[in-house]
Design a protein around this nucleic acid. Sequence first.
DNA 1: ACGGTTCTAGAACGAACGCTCTATCCGATA
DNA 2: TATCGGATAGAGCGTTCGTTCTAGAACCGT
Lengths: 200, 200
Amino acid sequence: MTKTANTAKAEVEPGTRARVVRAASLLMQRQGYAGTGIKQIAQEARATLGSVYHFFPGGKRELAVAAVQHGDEEFAEALRDALDAHDDPAEAIRALCATLADGLSDSGWTDGCPVTTTSLGTAALAPDIQTAAAEAFARWRGLVRDKLRTSGIAEADADELAHTVISTLEGAELASQVSRSKEPLEIAGRHLARLVALHR
Amino acid sequence: MTKTANTAKAEVEPGTRARVVRAASLLMQRQGYAGTGIKQIAQEARATLGSVYHFFPGGKRELAVAAVQHGDEEFAEALRDALDAHDDPAEAIRALCATLADGLSDSGWTDGCPVTTTSLGTAALAPDIQTAAAEAFARWRGLVRDKLRTSGIAEADADELAHTVISTLEGAELASQVSRSKEPLEIAGRHLARLVALHR
DNA sequence: ACGGTTCTAGAACGAACGCTCTATCCGATA
DNA sequence: TATCGGATAGAGCGTTCGTTCTAGAACCGT
């Protein structure tokens, strides 16, 4: 039994399964589910088709679910970091928007929200992908809600605000990506900060 | 020369080209660009492959651009109607969110923003699709900005608010679609209304 | 040293893809 | 009525898709 990430080497050189998931997440983030081929994923991950189907017997759909969950955890971590960086949630959210804008710009406007791009257009085709995406959204929203509540915002207000924070974050990242400009994200950051500050 | 929409019959029974564009827009809205086949579009539009390539010699990409522009005008019309329905822009936007939530729910959560789903994941592949999507966003934003300005909001504020209105609308529709719930859109409507009301 | 499990490797399959091509139909014009 | 360009029709092209399959490599406890 070869547990992943047990040896020191596994930390530096991720196992095949991890490489495949990362490649799938990255490629689907850029090209969507239907636009990304399994062979392309295998090539990008420096794995073979046999390895991919060994780790993901469910094929492309199972792989896509893992990719969405990977993107989920990735963004959740970034979100946690951003929220922990400032006591004031309004300022934390504003700074997060700036960070997102920088990342998007640095990627040449190609790397938007991994979960969104992967799951969009798969509703009828693969409900499990949609479910994974919904869970990601719910988790992110929970992180924001907890931060707002510990900052003294009433429970009902915090819950609704968290909804809009995630929605606006997502929409502004999309708008920035499409218009190839940091403006939507930066403006959204200022407006969200103002909206949050209203409830303290 | 058979000009479209000249005869009365053409009004009732749209020409082949119009049917193809509508089918392309609808299908790509649900399945994305890569997930939608030209043969599927032709079948849905009750047209043949020959007809499709007759009207769109540029192939799938040219067809996708037309589909995005169709979705652009479609939503622009809905946006105009919503903004005209109330003097108060805040109330107009709140009502629009409710309308969008209803439409999304009625479609079984499949028909989100046509422009977004079609253009996402085509950045590197087809810049012209991305351009058409950017133009759609800019047009919608212009409609909102004009409404805010004629309601007495300062030019700079109106411009920034319009950005966030479009971003949040887009993001909330996405969140509603993924979580299969009207909540994100309804909450976003209330928050946007409050944000707009702040600037009067 | 060995038997068994895990993982790697890639050839091969049927289906579907975008697109090209030729043939035919139809309505307006001469 | 003869003609001709716009529009329709679909067979067929080469390619790529997701998936399956068999064979070998690497590693394990005994």
